Simulated assay, not measured.
Amino acid sequence: MGKRRKAPLPNRRALRPTRRLTKSNDIVKRAPVGRKLKNTTTMIDSDKINFILGKETSEYLQILVDNFAYPDSTDFWDGNWINTRIKIKVGGFIGDYKAQLRNVDFLDFKNGLERLYDKLDGYANFDCLEDYIQIKIKGDGLGHFSADCVANDSPGIYGHELKFSIDFDQTEIHSLTKMIDDLLIEFPIKDIEQIQKNKGIR
């Protein structure tokens, strides 16, 4: 009699359970449990003007600026919209989506960060009209800060929302304000006199 052949072993990799890392309309990734997701889009992009909160080695929120949404407009309301790409890596979640923001909001955010650096307590907020990303930073008075963030890949009834927090300390505020300065040099606020004429407008 011939030798009985052993049944082939099942593909263990195929049977390994997966976990959902994000639920964005723009990008949905799955990675095997216990394995790192190989995805070049999660790497911090240094080729464009960008703002980064957090660290690449742990967790971060990154906003990359592509261009002015309406480059021919010199109007304060239309001319200051910028096309951006938002990348997020927190816990087991990875997000990557496009958003239209206003450069004016970065100026307000920088002013709030500078107040936090001096006083160590209080708040610094980044708010955008379309609700693509909200950042609310609170200081504890001792030099520690927590940024509570809400990301929305498509504001409205069909969007997906992710809430997360990133902690940092006073030593990182200078680099945050420097990134905003560089962004506003590359994408300056048009018709900036409107800010002086109408304090508080955004």
Rank of each mutant, 00 (worst) to 15 (best):
K87R: 14
D72R: 08
K163I: 11
K119Y: 12
Q62N: 08
F76D: 06
F126L: 12
Q194H: 07
N67L: 06
R12L: 15
K190R: 15
T41I: 12
F93L: 06
P10N: 07
D118T: 15
F93E: 06
V150M: 12
Q196C: 01
C128K: 02
K119M: 10
P17H: 11
Q194P: 00
Y158E: 08
K190C: 06
D148S: 12
D118W: 00
V104W: 09
I195S: 06
D140N: 15
K178Y: 13
G54K: 13
D153G: 03
H144I: 00
E59P: 05
E172G: 06
V150H: 03
L129I: 12
I185C: 03
K29S: 11
A151C: 14
D167W: 01
D127Y: 13
D121I: 00
T22A: 14
D182M: 01
N67R: 13
R13H: 13
L162N: 09
R115E: 15
F109C: 02
K36Y: 04
P8D: 06
Q134E: 15
L113R: 01
G122M: 10
L129Y: 04
F106V: 01
F109A: 03
Y123H: 08
I86F: 02
G159S: 12
K136M: 04
I189Y: 00
S24P: 00
E114P: 00
S46G: 02
A147S: 14
M43H: 15
A124C: 11
I49M: 07
P32M: 03
D121P: 00
Q170H: 12
N198M: 11
D96C: 03
E172K: 10
L15A: 10
D191N: 15
N152L: 01
Y132E: 07
F93W: 08
L120A: 00
E172Y: 09
D47K: 14
E59C: 02
L21A: 04
H160L: 03
I88C: 08
I135M: 07
T84G: 05
V28W: 00
Q194S: 08
K98P: 01
L101T: 02
G156Q: 10
I63P: 02
I192N: 04
D182G: 06
G156K: 09
R35N: 04
L116Q: 01
M179L: 07
A7L: 13
E130A: 14
F187E: 08
I49H: 14
N50R: 15
D182T: 10
D140K: 06
R19D: 13
D169C: 02
D108Y: 14
E59V: 04
